[in-house]
Design a protein around this nucleic acid. Structure first.
Lengths: 343, 343
DNA sequence: ATTGACAGCCAAAACGTTTCGGTGTATGAT
DNA sequence: ATCATACACCGAAACGTTTTGGCTGTCAAT
């Protein structure tokens, strides 16, 4: 049995009210009483019952994060780093983090609805936004607090943080063209994710001035896993006109691509260039180290969560919509002599 | 404003008691009343307020999982897969999962204590147990429900799941010796983790019959990250007598090792053999694919969580202490012609 | 007619907290 | 003496549930 206010009240001979107010340092409690109450509270090892506190305060001091994962085997460094960012920001401000996994689809909205209606969480962090995002539409309609990593199609005005994917892939494109590549293939994420558009657009923008296009058959949609990158490249290399460069839209697929290339006895960087996007820790220590675009995922998680907490506290947001500039990180996967970064 | 029992009571002309009992399908409520109450509840979109429910039931229906991570940049596929397993098991049984990150050390126990005393969670899943584990000692003393992935030194009797690390590394050792390796180095985890002992012991057991030892200078302790594997091998290869095989105690360090080897222009599998432990998805798609020991991390997470839920429900555990047999997975990182698995 | 059983319903207490609106008692000013 | 003021404290209600222990009316059996 853990201690309650009632027990402290009995032990000190004060009322529950006074004990509560003493612990909360109200100034209508005498210093002597405060000292007494605190001493007894310590003796009994008192910790407020959060369940009761939350019921009375009508808030849960909890932030919800629902990971949109397919299938059980889920092992994405992107998510774990993001999670760490969100989690640490939450802890820092005294919030709890409620984590759930739920594949996109029919059940998904139900999970959000349930958590909202049962007062289980005070706000949500949304990750991996989609072109038409039912989660965002629902939360917006319900006027329930949330922040997102990623944007949405249309002009819904909600608070988010995103990385400028157009700019990032443009940098990649310029880099590859600058190295003389003309046949470039792209490993794209699923089409319902909005950032797919951004990244393809950026790549196209870089190619266009050189009279280069990105034909549909040079775009292969994967599911962001290493395996899908591997499979895509197996397919690509079995065709007659193999590309000289492969721009993957995330590092995991790039790593899979490298492995497929090497599996065929070709050298990454020499025979075929490969680039990624994310700059996961793995990218630095692959062989060859991966040229990619850095996204500060941990910081983004932290920022998104901080923004949400501001919202929950009714504080003003310094900026509701943040778009971060990505940074090209040139390593060795496009040739062994890295060039100075192309801004 | 969301609906409450009180509102349904008013609308139906019944008492709060009756409404509550109708929704819970008690049989002292007439079928007509039940139907009426349910209809109105649906109309109002009633969802029970979990905060109130939990206070009254004196349990939180929440499981705590505190990830022992160092530093902010945390991106371990091991953890994300384990998390998915725990999370899915929890969801399946109607439990919430509260996730926190906290580096091992002074603050750690405080976090556990706080969550226990404030009734925030009903039980804990402990991961990455240590030789002397203060978390386990505390929870055991407090008679607070928990299950662990991993054992502890001494004879504390608590429910856990573990993989037989001795057996796993023995298989690795036999495999390497069978391939003719005589100078074998080991990339070990931090010494305070108990499984470090098991893995080293297993490796030694495999070497001993062949008159081979594992001298201290052939053991390098890393921190389980890819970078530490990379650094360790850089160090190893700069010495006069380089090993012909490197047995890493997890895949991430093995991958880092491979990258360091390749960075020196050596061929993994031909010049130096490398092995891992875990069989993360990455292992299959590295180049060359990594020979390693498979641990069903997702299933372990699920099992550990299922066990905890049984405990919470007061149900009997079919087995309190589970030790799983690991499986050697031979790929190409010890030579390009994989041999049949050594049991 | 009286009893007992049963079906259907409900008031009130409880979970542990916070907060509103007091009450009583000194102290000092008039 | 009276009034105002400040101080220290507290009872009771509230948050939204669940559960205990009733109560009332009907019907069949005596």
């Amino acid at each position: 049995m853990t201690a309650t206010l009632k027990q402290i009240a009995r032990r000190t001979g004060k009322s529950i009210t006074t004990v509560s107010r003493a612990l909360a340092d109200y100034d209508d409690v005498s210093p002597e009483t405060k000292a007494l109450v605190r001493r007894v509270a310590d003796e009994l090892g008192y910790t407020p019952n959060l369940l009761a506190q939350r019921l009375q305060k009508r808030r849960s001091d909890t932030i919800g994060l629902i990971l949109p994962t397919f299938g059980p085997r889920f092992s994405d460094p992107f998510f774990s780093e993001f999670l760490a960012g969100v989690g640490n920001a939450a802890t820092e401000h005294g919030y709890d983090l409620l984590v759930s996994t739920q594949a996109p689809g029919d059940g998904e909205l139900q999970v959000y609805r349930q958590k909202v209606q049962s007062h289980q969480v005070d706000g949500f962090v949304i990750v991996r936004t989609r072109r038409q995002d039912a989660r965002i539409q629902y939360l917006q309609d319900a006027a329930f607090p949330f922040t997102a990593f990623g944007r949405m199609e249309g002009d819904l005005d909600f608070p988010f943080v995103d990385v400028d994917g157009v700019e990032g892939m443009r940098a990649i494109g310029k880099h590859l063209v600058g190295l003389g590549h003309r046949r470039i293939a792209c490993l794209a994420p699923p089409a319902d994710l909005l950032f797919t558009d951004h990244r393809l657009a950026g790549l196209r923008e870089a190619l266009a001035p050189h009279g280069l296009a990105l034909p549909d058959d040079q775009i292969i949609n994967g599911d962001l896993t290493q395996k899908s990158g591997f499979d895509a490249v197996e397919h690509l290399l079995s065709r007659s006109q193999a590309p000289t460069a492969i721009a993957a839209c995330n590092d995991l697929m790039a790593l899979g691509a490298m492995s497929a290339i090497q599996g065929r006895g070709l050298a990454v960087g020499k025979d075929i260039a490969v680039t990624g996007f994310d700059d996961i820790p793995m990218a630095e220590h692959s062989h060859p180290p991966l040229t990619t675009v850095h996204q500060p995922i941990y910081q983004i998680g932290k920022l998104v969560c901080d923004m949400l907490i501001h919202l929950l506290r009714g504080e003003a947001l310094s900026s509701r919509q943040v778009i971060l500039a990505p940074k090209l990180v040139v390593r060795h996967s496009c040739g062994s002599a890295p060039q100075p970064a192309v801004a």
